[in-house]
């Protein structure tokens, strides 16, 4: 009988690892950009669609398991529409990105033991505000190199009608900054710090539109933390609308 347990133990660990990582072994298959028509005469726009393969989705219920948040996957990363967790951005290659004034009104909520939204694109240098909307403690911390922080345990945002100042944190680093709650291990989200003002989250059907792009060369990046970063180069001219379609793998 002990061989049964031993084999099960090792086998499940090994096979679980292989299954988890199998998605990354497939090759990309993306369409080229297509010139489509005209728009604002001073700028260009890019619209299109990102295709994301359907992934395994957990049960819609969150049970109270013995190991609490550790073995209760967050719907942030598994149950939610993957399109809503995807950001498309256009990064100028042959000119300086305009309008990089940092933003100061970006809110990330902690509600029902989830970060809302699960991904927040911001311009580098922006200030993000964290609000605990649950009746129990949350914290927010990041171990991303160059963007480490820990705001400690934070109470509910409003107690006895007395407003508690929300915690704010200035985003300094570039790229995806993973944030977690140390009290509820399943809670995780991403702040995507960008060096461009041209970005958009996908709509529920995977469509998007980037407007007001000056003419020039761009690198289009499609970020979803469950997939490899997708990058494509594109040259746009003023007064044109470009339609693109990419596949995430």
């Amino acid at each position: 009988m002990k061989f049964f347990f031993f084999a099960a133990f090792i086998g499940a660990l090994v096979m679980g690892f292989i299954t988890t990582n199998a998605d990354f072994l497939t090759s990309p298959n993306n369409n080229n950009t297509i010139l489509n028509g005209s728009t604002d005469l001073k700028t260009a726009s890019i619209s299109g669609k990102i295709n994301i393969p359907s992934t395994q989705v957990n049960t819609s219920r969150r049970f109270r398991s013995s190991y609490g948040s550790r073995t209760n996957r967050s719907s942030n990363s598994n149950g939610q529409n993957q399109y809503l967790s995807t950001v498309v951005s256009a990064h100028p290659l042959n000119f300086e990105a305009p309008d990089m004034e940092p933003e100061d009104s970006i809110l990330i909520r902690q509600k029902d033991a989830e970060f809302i939204p699960s991904i927040t694109p911001v311009k580098v240098g922006s200030t993000v505000y964290f609000v605990n909307d649950d009746p129990f403690y949350h914290n927010v911390f990041s171990l991303t190199p160059g963007a480490k922080f820990n705001i400690g345990r934070r109470p509910t945002g409003d107690i006895f009608s007395k407003e508690i100042p929300v915690t704010k944190w200035r985003v300094e680093g570039l790229g995806p900054i993973s944030i977690f709650c140390d009290i509820h291990s399943q809670m995780n989200a991403v702040i995507l710090s960008l060096d461009t003002p041209f970005y958009s989250k996908l709509n529920e059907d995977g469509s998007f539109e980037l407007k007001g792009l000056p003419a020039g060369e761009y690198e289009i990046r499609v970020y979803n933390k469950a997939f490899d970063l997708l990058t494509q180069q594109i040259t746009v001219k003023t007064g044109q609308t470009y339609s693109v379609e990419y596949n995430l793998n």
């Binding site: 009988m1 061989f3 049964f4 084999a7 660990l13 096979m15 679980g16 989705v57």
Partner: peptide
């Protein structure tokens, strides 16, 4: 025993999509 264990535990992630291993 080994075969039974492999059948029960290893393909679980594929056959029963909602089973979660940590």
């Amino acid at each position: 025993c080994i075969i039974l264990a492999l059948i029960l535990f290893c393909p679980g992630t594929a056959l029963f999509a909602q089973i979660q291993f940590n």
